[in-house]
Amino acid sequence: MTTKKLFLFFPKCETEKPIIYHLVKDFGLIINIFRAKVTPDEEGYLALDVTGEDANIEKGVEFLKTFGVNVDPFNKSLRWDASRCTHCGNCLTHCPTHALKVADRQTMRVAFIEELCIECLACVRNCPYGVCTSAF
C-alpha cells in the first residue's frame, strides 16, 4: 500500500461526473480530500491523497485521464518556491503539521516536507514573501 498525493484539474465539462466514487468503488482506493473546488459551469480543482496498491493507483490515474482530467505530479496545488524563501521562519508556528520546519538549527534554514502538508493554506496567508501559493 502506498499513499500518493494528487492534484487534479477538471476541465469544465467533467465536473458533473462522480469521479471519486469510481476511484473508491472500481479501484479500491482510499481517498483523503484536502481541498476541492468544484462549481457548476466552471473548471474544478481537487487536492487529495490516494492510498492503495501501486497498480490500482496507476489504473485509477489512467481512468481519470480518460475523462480529460489533468493529473500532474509536478504541478502542485500548494507550492513552496524554495528560490524565493528567505528562511525567516515566520511560517513555522502557523503550519499545524510541521510540513514547514527548520531543517537544521545551525543554519536555521527552513524546509518544506510536502507529504506532511494538509493544504490548510495558513502559510499562503502568512508568508511575508509570497513564497507559498495556492493553485486555487
Partner: peptide, 20 residues
C-alpha cells in the same frame, strides 16, 4: 523553537532570517 512565558510553553517563529 520554544520558549516559556507565564509558565506556558510557546512555539516560536521569527521574522529575521538567521540563514540569510
Amino acid at each position: 523553537g520554544q520558549i516559556e512565558v507565564n509558565g506556558k510553553k510557546i512555539d516560536v517563529g521569527s521574522l529575521s532570517s538567521y540563514a540569510k
